[in-house]
Write a protein that binds this DNA or RNA. Structure first.
Lengths: 350, 350
DNA sequence: TTGAAAGCGATACCAT
DNA sequence: ATGGTATCGCTTTCAA
């Protein structure tokens, strides 16, 4: 096969330089090489070969536990990804989306074979086989959860989940709410919508739900409402429909809770749907609180905990692509804020 | 450095086989090799090296002209990607998201350096520098638009855009509508929301808008409404807000159009917003029609053209990862359907 | 400014 | 069932 180097009568190094280090050769020669390349249909250095040689791929793997469509259905996720993409673009890096199959072996294989420079873990349950597979790769990993904080090498950009719901819970407790229901996804690993009375927060396998539930537990414990008195319902997934169904489990039996607390706005909106169906008034008959502060929360008048999704994504990207020397600075905790709207109010029986 | 092969006392080929062709060696030896690997912290074959050797990367590049967040804000896009991801997963392939920068050079470079087995083009204007860069790579490309239909090698999964809006336009014409306004993004390359009176459909640089506008032009020409009589407004982007602003351009001057036709549901919803603001009744005072049939269209009672987004994505993936032998079968045109809801009705002055 | 040669880390093919 | 060897296509170092 006729190579560009042969055609021009130079060495392969020189052709390589023409593409990657223009300052290393004369402009005329460079042009001559490009000419020949065009003639021969050579498109420039092969990215795979270049990756092997340079040890850099130009892509980071984004791990999802869910299907793509769930991931992108949640505006919070979209904002996070957008921030990540912004930073990635600055570093000439693409995002390799890796929706992980249910099949643990397949998921681990996907992680093992991913052609990436690092991983961004987002919404991945602790028990997932991909977690272990990632560690093996010895690539940098950044998490959007406060994970392995004990490990000084761990990188994350997180929020203080438990503190956020502690504050939200105290606010509700102060309003007099004592009959409480919590709705979360992955309280149990099964994807079923049903009450899961026995679980303690510590038993919840999914970090985010675990922490947020713990915050609520602590808040209500302060006013004498113990954990077993609080109804907990597992949502099959982080969707409005699942949450509406979950809400049914507690709304359709007496005594009805005076407040329903969801670990995400998507879930909280579903709770509002369930109230609406029953002619119940949010903030009057039943208070509802969410988490994230997605745009629809404003429209719906949903009280919620705001977290900086976009900024989380941006900083996650930076932690991966341009990590600070100081290890401590690789563990970022961003602030949250309780945003009170119309969906919460004094407990009706207070 | 101590290699796994050395440690076990076998050749590199055998180690390779242990990972990639388990049937080629005894289970005991395989276990011994994995043991040694674990001890030495070897994570298995390096994906970059393997890609180079095998000539397969296990990823396809998804090209966007827009930012990630716009792409994922549109439910139509999300469905398409979901279908693509479904097929990709079946073939152990990831999706490399490539939001292309405005900067033409950077975009071309991104395409040149992407470590992928093929490209899926989605929502990329014809003039974009990435188009040419892709051709150079000589990788398979699938488009979600009926592109280069003359080229027998071209692969696409599309709909007949013009036929779809021709049908929709005829439906409106039959309802008596004669004063028409069209709203589309990229009627002109500039991202500005403003009337663009002079453009003929043929001049529109973005394929999708061009075709859809042409279909509407033909429909109304049939009832004697010529193109110059039809108001066309460019939307800065495919968003509700931009469309609401675009609608203002035609709603706030007399005589008001009796029908506003948008090339996407996102835009059409924005038009409904604008009507709502002015106390105008959709389907009575002003008829509105969209395109895509996203879920919100149902809720909003929006008349629209349904296209099979999920299926488009699925088949696009198949065309890339498992192409049929027969070239003709690589050019798929899926059906569309006019879905009539409450946002359209007889022209008020008819 | 240019060239020669040594890998990057794996796999395919052919022997044994 | 296992090993030897060539090779994938490039970049890098060092020498000319």
């Amino acid at each position: 096969m006729q190579t560009v180097a042969d055609e021009v009568g130079v060495s392969r190094s020189t052709v390589s330089n023409a593409y990657s280090r223009p300052d290393q050769l004369s402009p005329e020669l460079r042009e001559k090489i490009f000419d020949a390349a065009r003639r021969l249909g050579y498109a420039g250095p092969d990215p795979a070969a270049r990756s092997l040689r340079k040890g850099r791929v130009g892509a980071i793997g984004v791990l999802f536990s869910a299907t793509l469509s769930y991931a992108f259905t949640d505006p919070y996720a979209v904002q996070f990804l957008r921030g990540l993409a912004e930073t990635a673009e600055l570093h000439d890096t693409g995002l390799l989306l890796m929706p992980l199959a249910e099949d643990a072996t397949a998921a681990a294989a996907a992680v093992q074979n991913a052609v990436v420079d690092g991983f961004c873990v987002y919404c991945l349950p602790d028990w997932h086989s991909a977690q272990a597979a990632m560690r093996l790769r010895k690539l940098p990993v950044v998490s959007s959860e406060r994970r392995d904080a004990g490990d000084p090498e761990a990188r994350f950009v997180a929020i203080d989940e438990a503190a956020a719901t502690l504050a939200a819970g105290r606010y509700l407790a102060a309003l007099g709410h004592r009959r409480i229901a919590l709705i979360a996804d992955w309280i149990v690993p099964e994807r079923e919508t049903r009450p899961v009375a026995t679980a303690r927060p510590e038993d919840v396998p999914y970090y985010v739900s675990r922490e947020r539930l713990a915050g609520y537990r602590d808040a209500f414990a302060e006013v004498g409402v113990e954990w077993p008195e609080i109804a907990t319902v597992n949502a099959a997934q982080n969707s409005r429909a699942a949450a509406a169904q979950a809400a049914s489990c507690v709304l359709d039996r007496a005594p009805r809770p005076t407040a329903i607390l969801a670990v995400s706005d998507m879930l909280a909106l579903g709770v509002l749907d369930a109230l609406h169906t029953r002619g119940l008034r949010p903030g009057r008959d039943v208070s509802v609180i969410g988490f994230d502060d997605i745009p629809d929360a404003t429209t719906a008048g949903l009280t919620t905990v705001r977290q900086p999704a976009l900024e989380k994504g941006r900083q996650a990207g930076a932690l991966l692509l341009n990590p600070p020397e100081d290890l401590a600075q690789r563990q970022v905790v961003l602030p949250t804020e309780l945003v009170v709207r119309a969906s919460t109010g004094p407990a009706p029986d207070a």
